[in-house]
Write a protein that binds this DNA or RNA. Sequence first.
RNA 1: GGGGCCGUAGCUCAAUUGGCUAGAGCAUCGGACUGUCGAUCCGAAGGUUGAGGGUUCGAGCCCCUUCGGCCUCGCCA
Length: 595
Amino acid sequence: MLKRTHNCGQLRIEDAGKDIILSGWVDSYRDHGNLVFIDLRDREGITQLVFNPETQPQMHKLSRQLRCEWVIAASGKVRHRGEGLVNPKLPTGEIEVLIDKLEILNSAETPPFELDNAEDVAEETRLKYRYIDLRRPRMQDILRVRHKVTKVTRDFFDSRGFWEIETPFLGKSTPEGARDFLVPSRLCSGNFYALPQSPQLFKQVLMVSGVDKYFQIVRCFRDEDPRADRQAEFTQIDVEMSFVESDDVISVHEQLVAKIWKEILGVDVKLPLRRMTYKQAMDDYGIDRPDLRFDMKLKDISALAGASEFKVFADTIQKGGIVKGLCAVGGGAKFSRSDIEKTFTKVVTDFGAKGLAWFKVVKNEQGDIDLSSNLVKFFTPEQRKAIIEKFSANVNDLILLVADKEAAANKALAPLRLKVGRDLGLIDDKAYELLWVIDFPLFEWNENEKRYDSLHHPFTAPVPEDIAKLDTDPANIRSQAYDIIVNGSEIGGGSVRIHQPEIQAKVFDLLKITKQQAQDRFGFFLQALKFGAPPHGGIAFGLDRLVMFLTGTDNIRDVIAFPKTQKGQCLLTDAPSGVEPAQLDELNLRVQTHH
RNA sequence: GGGGCCGUAGCUCAAUUGGCUAGAGCAUCGGACUGUCGAUCCGAAGGUUGAGGGUUCGAGCCCCUUCGGCCUCGCCA
């Protein structure tokens, strides 16, 4: 076999005259009867090969058999293409290789889709023939970036004294959090392992073990419905550190993020990153992961709205709700009433709001700035003026308002803000706005279950000043949790953990986890805390989402070599599948079908 | 579990109100061609309209069932 001396993206004008060997896939062929041109492709690029019937008649004849995606090796001499023949689209476009020997290593069936057009091909087809899809330069770029991110990450942590340690995949199922993937045990019949949702407790145990600084690039599993940015099987960069406070963890990891941005994108990220409290994020953006690429802050006009004659507003305030909204600069001129009532109203109702109130900001008959909509009759001129002032609105702006309980209003307004921002063209696709969101509440009240839920997870430590509130005012305890946000998407989050068993016990108490339940689920961990657990904290990044940002895709399946569909199926291998009865027998399992 | 979009040739799409032999581009195959690079030109072949059932003189189109893909709400400590 001819062994390659170079790759297909490597040769330049300086290499002219060299005898070289390339191997790869036939990307395209152009047969002129006389000359035959082959674009040869490997993961590094494309190089043009030329077959000339006058210099090498046998090889020329052989080359005419070549078809797309055949695998070949060929030797020849690099030469300049000559005036007017350079292809500026290719990095290797100044040269070509005049072939003296061609070796066909393998033929190929006609591919089910053309690599050039794959962006338009149904994803179903791409997934079924994933090996062909992954040959495309775009997909290989993504694989390369993903590799580089993990490489940068490993080097970063290694240089700072972190150890990469593996934790079990076969673990213990707990009812908290997401649904577990279960694995039946053969040796302990009737019992099940769970695949990890994250290595949370193991990494904390490693801190008790004196490992001090741990990281792992680790697969995690959550048996919930996928989304465009969510896959049941995903990868975390998981970290834990001993003898640290929030600032220590934040500082190390913003350096990691800056390093990744620099190495992959060549972008300098200014450190330290800005920080925003959870409360400010919720007040101004209605969400704990604000997209700061555009301004358009939300404003609460409850005081004004409650005094109006508009029954929906007055009733909402009466019942303890709020009226909150945003001002779309220029939106009054840009959006029609039908845009507002169809598109924008649909956004908020999709997210649970009952409706959307709107005002266009106009000049009235007296030539003064005023509001216009089907609702103005319920508002006095003074109230209208106050609303305009509250939003610092100008003529041609559009004010959109939602009335509901605070959480519900925010829930609807955050996506509305994004939609309006996009429609107004306020979002710069090339910008990266990174920040930390801090000071999360430790708990949120669960009305259905009449108890508190952890906002982060049950091992998150309260801020020291708030510890006393565990007994008196749990709702207002701040936690030592932090999320890192890029362009409105959470790429990582973590916390300082509870390392004292007494505080952990109190938290379980508020979560209505009984001593017995705590013992059954986390007994090993509670015991570990009693044997000299150092103060510790950590973080986990979503590697898939990170790579999505770095490669500019909004589809998580693009950044996973072998992803699954929305039903969790692998179209390449057809997993999951039925199993032999004998396999079930060994596990003492029986499959029940029901409707 | 709910809502939405989609499924026609290998790929991407078209087909008027239910009406002739379901078309086009690309790919494929054959031929031509002295420098192409999305080569070009000539020709050919290619269909269980996702599957099953129904209405009708007649269904790609209407109805029912079902399978699959994507987006999304719920869910994702």
